[in-house]
Design a protein around this nucleic acid. Sequence first.
DNA 1: CTGAAAGCGCTTACAG
DNA 2: CTGAAAGCGCTTACAG
Lengths: 347, 347
Amino acid sequence: MAKIARPAKATLAAVALEVGVSTPTVSKVVNGREDVAPETRARVLTALEQAGYQSPVQRRSAAKTGTVVEVVVDVLTSAYTAEVLEGILHFAAAEDVEVLLVSVSGRAGPSGPSAERRAQRMVDEGRAGMIVVTSAFSETQMHAFRRRRIPVVVIDPLNPPPADVVSVGATNWAGGKAATEYLLELGHRHIAFIGGIETAECNQARLHGYMAALSAHGVRLNPQYVFSGGRFSRDSGVAGLRSLLQLDEMPTAIFAASDSIALGVLSEAAHHGIRVPEDISLIGFDGTIQGEESVPPLTSVSQPLEEMGRAALRALLRQARGEVLDSHRVELATHVVVRESTTALTA
Amino acid sequence: MAKIARPAKATLAAVALEVGVSTPTVSKVVNGREDVAPETRARVLTALEQAGYQSPVQRRSAAKTGTVVEVVVDVLTSAYTAEVLEGILHFAAAEDVEVLLVSVSGRAGPSGPSAERRAQRMVDEGRAGMIVVTSAFSETQMHAFRRRRIPVVVIDPLNPPPADVVSVGATNWAGGKAATEYLLELGHRHIAFIGGIETAECNQARLHGYMAALSAHGVRLNPQYVFSGGRFSRDSGVAGLRSLLQLDEMPTAIFAASDSIALGVLSEAAHHGIRVPEDISLIGFDGTIQGEESVPPLTSVSQPLEEMGRAALRALLRQARGEVLDSHRVELATHVVVRESTTALTA
DNA sequence: CTGAAAGCGCTTACAG
DNA sequence: CTGAAAGCGCTTACAG
C-alpha cells in the first residue's frame, strides 16, 4: 500500500529503460536470439531477473495453473507403493495439488542425460517439485534438479540422499530391533533375517536392529541365518526359505525385512508342508494391507505408509513455497502389530 | 500446399469479419464478459469454434506443453487397479505422454458441480483427456466433459457409458461362462457365485455367463448360491462364504467375480478349517498377481489388465488427435488360468 | 449491447 | 550488433 519505491511494472520497455537499451533488444534476449552482443545480453538478463520479468504466457499460466507435483515410483503392484501413494493422493486432494505419476520400473531412476531433460521439463511446465519413492539416484542426477532449484523429497531412498535433499522414512533400526525382540520374548533363539536390497539404507538399518537385539539378549549371530541381496519382494522370501531348508539346523523364527518377502516365505513354506506359526514363526515389515489379509494374517512391524506419503508431500510443498524446513529427515514411528504368524516357542 | 480456399488465420479480427461484428465484441465473448447479447455470443462462439480459434496462451502452451492425460481411480490398493495403471504408464512412457493420477476413493466419481470445475480446469491446463477406471459417473457429469470436447475413455465402467464414450473391458460374459464350465467339467454341480457391485456391467455379465453355463449343462440355478451387492473386494468373499456356511447344503465350488473376492473366501475358509481345493474348489476373476501369489495359487479367469490400460490410453490419444475410432467398445479376450485352488469333485 | 478509437506489450523487417 | 519505425493481436474505456 505505502510502498515508497514502487518498482516499475516488469515489461520489456521498463527493463529496456532500466538497462539503457531499446525494447527490441530486450525482446531479442528474452527470445534467445543470437544477434545480441554478449555483454549487452548479460546486462539485460540481470535486469530481467531483478525485475522478475515474466513473458505474457508465463504470467497467465502462473496465474491460473494449479500446483502439480511429480511422483516417481518403481513398481506399482506392491502394497507398499500403493499405500504411500494413497497418502500422497489424499493430502494432494486436500491441498488442491495435482499428482503426476511417473513409473521408472526397470530403468534405474531418473537417469543421467534424461535427468537434465526431465528437470528442464519440470521447470518449463512449472511443476512444484518431485517425490521419489524407494528409488536410487546419483549425485549427478540430483544435480540437474538442484541447479534448477526444484525441490526433491525422497521416501525410503535406496542410497543415502545428498545432504540438501529431504528424506522421509520410518524408524527402521528401532523397528528391526523391536521385531527381533518380540521373537526373542516368544522364546525363539534361532532367528533368521531375510532382507531385501542389500545396500538400501532401510535394509541396513533393519538388519542392524536385528543384530542389536540378538546381541543385547546374548544370542550369537549365526551368519548362515542372514540373507540379503534380492529385492524387497516375494522371490527374496522364496529363495531365503529355500536356502534355510538346506541348513542342518532350521531357525524357529524368521524376520523378513518386508511384508512381500514374508509373503514369499509363507507361500514357499506351504509348498514344503511347513506350517506358520506352528513350525516356524514369521514377522514381516511394513504393515501392509496385503500382510493383514494373508493366511495366516502376518505379524509385522507397521510403518505409517500413508502418513509417510503425506509427510513427503507436506515437506515438498513447504520447500516449494520457499519455507525453510526444520529437518532434512522426517522419521515416523514403527510398531509391532501382532497377528497370527508368530507364536511362542514350544521346546 | 495447394489448398484452394486458404482459411483466414484464426485471429479475433478474422472471426469478427466472418461474423460481421467488431473485434472488441469477439474479444468479450472469448473472455466470457457478460455484456454481449446472447444471440451475438452464440454466433461468435460458433465462428470461433469453426475457425479453431486459440488464445495466445493456448497457442503457445499447445506448442510447448507435453501431452498430459488424467487417470481417475477409486482405490489404489487393489491389484486390479495397479496392473491397469502399469499398462497405462508403460504405454504413456513409450508415447511420451504424462499421467496425472486422480483418486476419488470414497467420493462417487467426478461429482456434479465439481465435474464442471474439473472439466474446465482440464481445458485450461490443456489436458488431452481422461481415463476413468471402474467408477460410476452420471450422464450429467459426462455432459461437462462432452460439451468441452474432452475425450473420455472408461475401463470396466460401473454403469453403462453414454453412447459416445469409448469403453474398454474384457469378455466378461464369456469369461464367466468359461469359469463355470471349467468347474462343471471337474464334476461340480453345486456351484456358487459371489459377485461384486450388483449393478456393475461386468458383474452382470459374469453372473449371466455363469447362469448360461449352468443352463447349458442342465444344472438348475440355486438362488441361494448367488450373492452380489458388496464391492469387488475381500469382504464380499468373507461375507459370501459365511452366508454359504448357513445353508443346509454347501456348494462344492465357488466362482468369485474377482480375485479379491476369492482371496476373501480363501482367508475365511482358513478360519473355518475348510481346505481349498480339497473341501471346496475356488475360481477367481482378473488373473491378478495377488491371486497368483496366494496360498494356494488361485485358478482365475485372466483379463489382460495391462493391455486394457494400454488400449484405453491408445483410444484416448486417438480421440485427442481427432481420429475417428472404429469402435466404441474395446473388448479383450479372457481365459481360464488353472492353478491350485480347483480340483475334480471326488464324490 | 455495440464498436470506433486509443493504447498496451511484444515482434518483425530493415537501415545503419 | 543496435534501435527507430511499423505492425500485430488483443484489450480497455467510453460514447452512443
